[in-house]
Every structure is written in C-alpha cells, then in structure tokens.
Design a protein around this nucleic acid. Structure first.
Lengths: 340, 340
DNA sequence: CTGAAAGCGCTTACAG
DNA sequence: CTGAAAGCGCTTACAG
C-alpha cells in the first residue's frame, strides 16, 4: 500500500493477480463480463500496486483523449473565468480533462488550437470567443466544436452554423435598452465591446432595434469600448465632452459600466441622479459597485456546463445540435432609475 | 493542401517522401542530423499531408506529456485567473499544454489531481493553494510540484519544503499594517482569509507582528472572512456592532476590502473619512473602487510565469529550487489616509 | 546520414 | 469468462 518504486503497469497487475492483461483491462472497463472471483483478485492487485492506467496508452489505443480544449480570449476576465468554472464542474463529473488556452483577442493563435486538436490532445473544443478559428475552416475539418456565449461569424458576418450555447445577445441588449427607455430616458447611448466581433454587432443591433422601436433611432448613439474598465472611463469622457449629454448609458459589459460610472463621477455627474447606467453580465462585483449595478444576468456556469455537455455528445457521435439560447434576466439595482 | 480524408500519420509522410519513419521523426526532432535534401523532401511531404504528430503516441514513447496541471481553488476569483494567465503565457512559449482543475477549497479533490499525475496526463503540477494534496504525500511521491502564491503546509502547519514562488505574505501583511499605523491609526483590525489555511496564518502573523512592534498588541483584533466580498460586508457589520470602532481595517484580499467599505457605508461610516481600509492583491477592480483601494500589489502574471518555469526545470531533471519570494509593493490610493 | 526493429502501455476483436 | 496477439503512432538505440 506504500508508494511503489516504479509506476505499476497493467502487466504488473496481471502478473500479481495471475491473469492476463486483457482481463485486467476488462475488469476495469467492463467488470460485468469478468467473473466475480477474478474481479476480486484483480481489484486486490490493483490496490496493492496502486495501479493507474497510463492515459497516453489509452488515448493511443482508444483514439480518444477524454480531454477538451477551451479557448478563451482573456482568462483575467471574471466572465470567462466563471464560464470555465461551469465547464470544469461537468468535466470533473464526466471524467474529462480540461485544457485551457488563453488566446488573446486579435492574436493569430487559432493555429495553436488547431494543432492541439489535430495532435489528438483533445477530442473537441469549446470556443469562448468568435475569432479563434478561421471561420470557414472550423466546420470543414472534422473538429468537434461548440461556441460558448459568443458565436463564430460566418463569411457574411452572421453566426456560423456551429453548435452554440449562450443567451440571445441581440434580444438581451434590446431588453436592456428598452428597460432604460421605459424608465423615461430618451438619450440612451450604447458603449460597445471590442470592434469587429459578432458579439458587439449583436448587442449594437439589439440596442438600435430598441431605440428604433421607441422612435428614437434619430438620437441613437454608439461609443466604442473594448470591455475594459478603462475603456468605460474613457467613453464617459467622450460622452461628457461631445454631443448632447446622455440620459442613460447601456454598456456592453459590467466592467465598462463601472468605468463609465467612475468617469461620469469625475466629470461631476452622479449615477443614477444625473445619468442612469446599465451593464451586462452581472459579474460578482456588479452587486457591490457604488451604486449597485443594474444589468443583464447571464447564467455563466450553466452556459459553460451545457456547452460541454453538448460537445461531449458530439464526441460520442451525436450530430451537432442547433444553437441553443438559455434564458437571461434583467436585474434592476440602483444604477438606473426613473428620469426625474 | 486541402483537408485530408484521414488524419495523416508518420507512415504516410514517410511513404510520400520515400524515406523511413525514423527519418521523418528525425527531421522533426533533430533536423541537423538529416541531410538537407532529405529534409526538404520530408518537409514537402509534411506540408502536403498536413501531418501533425500524434501526441498520445509521442507521450507514450517519450514518457513525457508536455503538459502541466494547474490546480486552483476558485477559477471565478480574478486573482487566480490572472495567475493562470501568466502561466499560460509561458506555456504557450514553451509548447506545453495547460490542464486546469478547479478544486473547490475544502473539497477532497486532491485525489483527482494525484490520479491525473499518476496517469501521466501531466508531467507536473502547479498548486495554487495549500490544501490540494495531502501535505505529507506530495513530496514523497515523485511528483514534480511547485506551489504558487500559497505554500503547502507541512505537518506542523509551517511551509512544506516544496518549490514555491510567491511573495513573502507575512512581511507584506506586516507592511500593510505598519502603513496603516504610520498613518496614525491605532485600532487597526484585520479581516482574515479562510480559516486554517497557511496563507491566512501568515498574514495574521504579519499583522500581529506589526501591531506588537508598535506596542499595539493589546488592541489587536482579528475578524474572520473567507475572501468573498460578502464576507467583507459581514465583517464590517461585526466590527460596527461589537467592540470599539476601528480606526482602520486591513483585509486579507481586495474583494473583502470592497465588501468592508460597502458594509461600513451601510452603517453610516465613510472610508477614508471615518475609517481607513487596505486590501491585498491589487486586482483590476481595486483601482476603480469607490474610493480607490490602497492595497498590496502582487505581480500575479510574473508569479505564474516564474512558477511554471521552475516546474519545467524540474521536469527537465533539475533538482527542486528553494522557495523564491518575488517583490510586492504597497500601493497607496484613497481608501487609507492620515488619522484626523 | 539512414533504416529495420523493438517497445512505450494499453484495448479489442478473435478464438476457445 | 479468459487469453494470445495484433496494433494504436510514435522514437530511439543499434547497425551499417
């Protein structure tokens, strides 16, 4: 029972139990097919040797790594971190390993992912942003891929026909905007995510649709951001310096909303007294910011878990499921309120 | 150049190039030893077939996975997420894969880690908290392990003799406390991290040492937290309701400091006017909280990168390096100021 | 500089 | 219910 000198192999176990390696293998993978007595002898030999099957040998033989790759644009971002946490929870449950690749947005690291997949290191990939694999290539190769939270754009910029789990970003952005309009605000501006991503386009589209539906298309205004707190702060500066002052600001994520509140305060504007602000995501800090942030809640852990489940289904041979939208929620806190 | 029907193997490449598989293998791993002409033929065959070596076969043969495991207590915590980001950056550089295991604090998931290591899925592990492997066992088995940011406790509760990269937590906590005392505060209280972790003990020790050095041992007070914002909020409530009101609060992380500021505000106390507050870590939100948080900065990405470098050295056969302390920094912002 | 051959540690038809 | 044997795709002494 003490630590063995050398790592035990299946042959060691077989020898000790007086059976063939095939029988040891079967005891582990299909115990029902092995006689009870034999199974007991094998179990004891395994316990004695501390045997753990070598995963490289299993992978080579079974042609399955029991591992998935998750590609994320920014691990430092709490949104992604929690998505991964949800992924990890089901991975643990299903006995699959999780390989993480931090792929900076805009970087050309898609090739690294492709290599890992081609090398058989992982059986499939979860893509946490839409610019990781060359859009056209992914569905062509026989990689199993599901996109998470953000879709993969096809050649025309719309969502590619790849399995996907996430909320309906366009609808959610429209709801957030409508919420602000419902509060009596008219000059609602939108601070966007990083340029040229499908996520950003979808949220802009939702914002514009809601403005148009309220007859406010003429005063719709979009200010660029990049999901960082600092970009929200900068956007607030831009808003204060140019154009008519906004009644409300809808930000494409919570970090930018926090930056906007901060930037507005620096310019002497108070939230929500002078300007209402809404974020997106409902990260942990949202509830504790000052004032607490009204936002859109995405069930991050659930999204991550569902996405892995779908990927595992595909790895098991099921055909790719069509994209699924999970429900989101408008959460009202104190950063947005009725127009005075 | 188009996607092949079946994944190409080394044998396909060899056939196409008219050489043996051994030569293909050498062209890839030791090109200098192969004639230029042969190398060119092999290179072309590789390009034509889109060959990528199967990693399971390589791992099995070389007895090396070129992968490391990183065990983290809470992926949703930005502190850990950035540590991993630093790890990933050097992993990418060195061509090693990163397996992440989210191991909830207090969970008994150390066994899962051990299995992954024993199965040869990874060549070593980076432990991001001190309760992941049974302390006594880790150094005994021939696992390559380096602890990151938080040490592994030995049987007596002190740091185990395992390679480690992080700041000197005791000294940093003492510096933070001394900083507050230097500002004129006397009733400085400490809100701790989760009970029974070595990190928590070290920071408490630093706090107590600084209080004692200032002749304030008699009024030292420690309030339990668990690194969550909510626990900081609760701690503030405790402080306000019981005992003498504090002049200053030193929190074991930034999240709790944000919670404390929030909780103090709820009780009608303003930071820093009524109470000074310091955090620990300097997460991204610290600079943008209201007021901006004075804290201790840990170079997270650097710590992660150094830790992986050390682990890789050990995997390459070098003896374990002694623990290394990287420099930290007291960052003064607006949440702490001179006593009125 | 190159090839033939063994072997890394498993799993799985195939027989019995 | 069990074993002998082939084979997954590489790498690496060993010869030449």
């Amino acid at each position: 029972m003490s630590a063995p000198e050398k790592k035990a192999t299946i042959a060691d176990v077989a020898r000790l139990a007086g059976v063939s390696t095939a029988t040891v293998s079967r005891s582990l993978s299909a115990p029902a097919v092995v006689s009870e007595e034999t199974r007991a002898r094998v179990a004891e030999a395994i316990a004695r040797t501390g045997y753990i099957a070598n995963s490289a040998a299993q992978t080579l033989r079974r042609r399955r790594a029991d591992a998935v790759l998750v590609a994320v644009p920014d691990l430092g971002n709490t949104f992604f971190a929690e998505l991964i946490s949800g992924i990890e929870a089901v991975a643990r449950d299903r006995g699959v390993a999780v390989l993480v690749a931090d792929v900076p947005r805009g970087g050309r690291a898609g090739v690294r992912l492709a290599q890992q997949l081609d090398a058989g290191r992982a059986d499939g990939a979860l893509l946490l942003h839409g610019a990781l694999l060359p859009g056209a290539e992914a569905p062509g190769r026989d990689w199993k891929v599901v996109t998470v939270a953000e879709e993969l754009p096809d050649d025309s910029g719309g969502p590619a026909p790849v399995s996907h789990v996430g909320i309906d970003n366009r609808a959610a952005a429209a709801d957030a905007t409508a919420h602000l309009i419902g509060l009596g605000h008219r000059r609602v501006v939108h601070v966007t995510g990083p340029r040229d991503t499908i996520l950003t386009r979808q949220r802009i589209a939702g914002y514009e649709a809601a403005m148009a539906a309220a007859g406010l298309a003429g005063i719709a205004r979009v200010v660029p951001g990049d999901f960082t707190i600092a970009s929200g702060h900068r956007a607030a500066g831009t808003l204060v310096r140019t154009g008519a002052p906004p009644d409300a600001v809808f930000c494409a994520n919570d970090e930018m909303a926090i930056g906007v509140i901060n930037g507005l305060a620096a310019a002497g504007l108070s939230v929500p007294d002078d300007v209402s602000v809404m974020g997106f995501d409902d990260i942990a800090f949202a509830a504790w910011s000052n004032p607490p942030l009204s936002t859109i809640r995405q069930p991050r852990r659930e999204i991550g878990g569902l996405a892995l489940s779908e990927l595992l289904r595909q790895i098991d041979g099921a055909p790719p499921a069509p994209p699924v939208h999970v429900p989101y929620e408008v959460v009202e806190r104190q950063s947005a309120r009725n127009r005075r």
